[in-house]
Amino acid sequence: MVEFNHITKKYGPVTGVQGVSFKVNPGELFGLIGPDGAGKTTLFRMLTTLLLPDEGSLSMAGKDVVQDYRFVRSNVGYMPGTFSLYQDLTVAENLNFFATLFGTTVAANYALIEDIYRQIEPYKTRRAGDLSGGMKQKLALSCALIHRPLVLVLDEPTTGVDAVSRKEFWEMLKRLQAGGLTILVSTAYMDEATLCDRVALIQEGRIMQLDTPEQVISGFSRPLYAVKGERIHRLLEFLRQLPQVVSAQPFGDSIHLTLVAEHCLPEVQASILQERPDAVTEAITPTIEDCFMDLMPATHG
C-alpha cells in the first residue's frame, strides 16, 4: 500500500533521513518508533506530499507520490503533530469544513467516524479551542477520516497525552484497522510499539530495525534479567560497579540487567543478595525499549 525506496532527505548540511526503505501492507497498522528528531515527521511529510525527497522513490497504492501528488492528496488522511484544527470554529463547523474540502459530506461518511464522533457530538456547538485535549484529538481524527482515505497517517498523535487517553486512542485505531484501513503512526512512547503489527525503530534518520514487535523482541541478543528492590537509584549504582554487569538500566520499579555471560548469573545474584537481602532477580522477556536501547549505541558510533 505504501512503499519507501531508499529515501534520503537533507536539510542543508544536516541529514534528516538517510536511505530509508520499507513497505506497508494493506490493512496494516505500522509504527515508526523513535525519539524526537529521529526523522519520523520528515518521512510522513514526504509521504503526504508536503516535502520532496532528495533521493529515492515513494509510492502509495501503486502511484508515485511525487508525480501523482493529487491522487495522494485525495486519498490520504493526515493528522500532523501540532494540533491542527481551527480553534475559533465549532466542532461541527470544523468537521463540515474538512468534509467539503475533500468534496464529500459528513452524512455520506458518518458510519466511518460514528464510533469516534459520537463521543464528542454532545459538544458540537462548542469551539474547538475550548475542548479538552482528549476531545480535540478525537475531533482531529474525525476530520482526518471524513473523506474515507485509503491510508491514515498520524504523526505522534499521543505526544503529551495522558496514559488513559492514550489507551483509548489506540483502542480507536485498532477498531479502524479492523474496518480495513491502512494506518501509519509515529510515536516516541516505546511501549506503544507492541500495539502495532510491525514497527520500524528509527534513530538519527536511519531505521535500526524493522519487524513485528515479537520478532524485534526475540532478536534481543543476550539474556535479560530484572532486579527488583527498594531504593532503585542506590541499587543501580551498586549493580553498575559489578564486573560481570554489561548494562544496568532502570525500568520503572526494577532494573534491567545484561551480563557478560549467562554463567555469571549465580555470582551476580549472590552479590546482590549480600547487598540487598530483599532484592529479587529473575530472567525476563525484553521490552521494545530494551531492544531500542540495545540497538542505539551501534548507530551512535
Partner: peptide, 9 residues
C-alpha cells in the same frame, strides 16, 4: 496552527 499542512495535503 498547522492547518496549512492539512490544507496542502
Amino acid at each position: 496552527l498547522g492547518t496549512m499542512e492539512i490544507l496542502l495535503v
